[in-house]
Design a protein around this nucleic acid. Sequence first.
DNA 1: TAATTTGTTCGTAGACATTTC
DNA 2: GGAAATGTCTACGAACAAATT
Lengths: 467, 467
Amino acid sequence: MPINIFSENSLSWMPQKNTLKRPIYQSLVHDLEEKIKSNILMPGTKLPSQRELADYLDLNFTTITRAYKLSEQKNLTYGVVGKGTYISPTVNTSPTITPFNTDKTINFGLISAFEENNNLLTNVIADISSQSNINHLLTYDSPIGMTSQRKVAINYLKKIGFSVSLDNIAITSGGQNALTIILLALFNANDKIAVDRFTYVNFIEIAKLAQIKLIPIDYDSAGMIPEKLKYACEHNHINGIYLMPYFANPTGISITDERKITLAQVIKSHDLVLIEDNYLHFLNIFDIGSSIQMRTLLPNQTITIISMTKAISTGLRVGYLLFPSKYKHSLVTSLINVNVKTSSLDAEIITQSLVTGVAYDMMYKKIALAQHANDTFNTVFKDYPNLKTNTLFFKWIPLKKSTLSGKKIESFFLHQGIRLFHSDRFLVSENDKQTFLRISLSAINNAETLKSALIKLKTLLEQFDYI
Amino acid sequence: MPINIFSENSLSWMPQKNTLKRPIYQSLVHDLEEKIKSNILMPGTKLPSQRELADYLDLNFTTITRAYKLSEQKNLTYGVVGKGTYISPTVNTSPTITPFNTDKTINFGLISAFEENNNLLTNVIADISSQSNINHLLTYDSPIGMTSQRKVAINYLKKIGFSVSLDNIAITSGGQNALTIILLALFNANDKIAVDRFTYVNFIEIAKLAQIKLIPIDYDSAGMIPEKLKYACEHNHINGIYLMPYFANPTGISITDERKITLAQVIKSHDLVLIEDNYLHFLNIFDIGSSIQMRTLLPNQTITIISMTKAISTGLRVGYLLFPSKYKHSLVTSLINVNVKTSSLDAEIITQSLVTGVAYDMMYKKIALAQHANDTFNTVFKDYPNLKTNTLFFKWIPLKKSTLSGKKIESFFLHQGIRLFHSDRFLVSENDKQTFLRISLSAINNAETLKSALIKLKTLLEQFDYI
DNA sequence: TAATTTGTTCGTAGACATTTC
DNA sequence: GGAAATGTCTACGAACAAATT
């Protein structure tokens, strides 16, 4: 018998007990789903606590736990220990950053790749198509990439400081695709992966699709804090860790050598699988060998992703996946089951652009453009010396405390003709500390346009007291 | 206190009670994993029953249930109600059918696409690369495919009997990739999908990676049996169904119109998501409109995959994904998170090959080649009229009862220089009924070679009393 | 065919960790 | 800083379902 007697409307969600069929927890989720769909329950609403609802329905509270757990899996709700369970703010929407930008909006959102030099690839493609026999590029063969292509890859990788053997590299359909392959190959639903408190949105999203839980770890200017990671490992069963050692997206932080060493110790002692994402690796051409590689410190547990999309062209989907031998079988099986194979044609274009030197030409041009965009930013924002970082592709601007949600701030700017992203988008879980804007400098392909766009941005930021 | 006293070695697996740490179920799986790795426990071994082991360890038997469940998730074991729990025969191996065939073996294994006409694409590729500006093919834009490309697709689809609007089609990186996108978008771990008792290996594998359970349903010559599907739906909570309505792989069965109607009724009444895989759709060019489409019967719950790899070239990874509007958001989000986008270049080549008619030329040539291969098969096996089907790309040969396992039979033939696949590979769960061999006719690109290979195959089959 | 064996599902109880107040 | 609130994890007992004998 219930101990408490509840007056009408005392709970935000009051499922009717007599309509519940067994299994009760599923029936509860069904009821919740219906009420969210029909707008009876709105995103952000706090649901009754497990014990409260259990009392009301005269059930054991862990039955409610199960219902809330299932509804979390379905992305209907999320729970915070000590606080409560809430209806997910992203019900029926998703924070996935998509490349759609059809309108005349200023695009500070998407991190792109200064694509105005893509035409340099025309000759490479023409040369490939004029080969007497391109049959070998059009068959099922070589699902992980042709030997010749992997050899060229190895040669390029050496230039940017990565050493790998022919048996430990596969070609994927880009960096994001590599993440999918890795998550499906090496992790199960409900596994946990440690990430920076702010991290790559589409990693958050693919982890959600694979039902892998992300555990946010705090960071400072040198990168993730090893003590915080250690603490999390000791209090959770964590299976892996995702890091962007170089110009982390979105914070722009590069992990210092010292920090890499202490992080590696923690990762080793808790036997985590390290996923190392080097999406801006080509900037390393300038300072090869200047820093320690995580994979050198942790050779048997590091999986490295080198995406070629930012370095060359975002439309050609090619990335390199580097792995220790013990993961090879799982990763190759996963690659075949996710993709069958990577397009040999795309892979060949990237390969030939590396062989002919066109790729390097493009990379140097991109670096110059990025440098110039960066200079423009620094000129426009010269009164804000704290924003002067050397994160070439994007900026990370701290905001004053505001009562507005991230969503509201983004739509305010969009209304003003500027697409940009608020730090909330990059959050794995709630956070009431500092908030930021991420300003991509890499999607606007014209120096003059960029300058006037930045001036407009600065004016708005100051006018509405954001910075 | 345990009731029974066990003598030494009475159980196939005897974890030491004093080494078990809490959580016990995880500790048990760890112990099992170690013993499998170190070959103390071999694949196929029957493990103690849940109650037996619980008794021995003085635990509640559902704690063992949990341990066995986790080990099944990790692909270490599988359980059969009423029979017991066994160590998975595929521990550390995988039945994924890979395109590797580097040696001189006769390849009756892989279903390929009569690729000797791939050179016809050379001009298409050359024309694309000679366009004054191919920049638009090399950027992040149009993740689900350019409008122009989707329009051409719609036009082709009409020719093979599929009607779809521009808003309900996306371009994926091939059919397998579409399956990945669908499973991640619309299903969760532990969901159940009904499939034919024998089904596409790489669907079994991607389902395993996504931790989705497949429920095998019996079939007859007209396709899956609706009563069996109904029974399964009533006794399980089934979320979806995967069908290949046309020349199902590997059985070669096409679902009759009558059967489609009764299946659709069951699918509708149990609200299943139907995944319809049309990998050999282009054979329909010959008999457009001759059969009912499942998606016409179930317009709001059918997702259709039209892979272009078999129709044109297996190396260009392009497929079309057709969906009702209610699934659009989930599927597009999943596509972006799995791939970011499909290679626009590959998509454009397929598109232009359709526009210029080269694609149709290739398809007709493939059909002729397939017809010829089929005739050759029928000639060689003329004494076996029961094998005379019109399954153009492969054959399905019933075997006499044998004590040999599928693996053994495959390796017997491989030893004789012939790669082929035994029906065990296509099984979702055990089956002691009829066994088969699948003989692909589509990977050998030379008529003479095919004939002598088939003669060799027939001689071996008869000599060793397989048929 | 009926009884038995065996794996599966669900609701329950207690111990625990984190956050809030 | 400590007590209370709240979600999470693990083990357990009962009812159930499928396969075997």
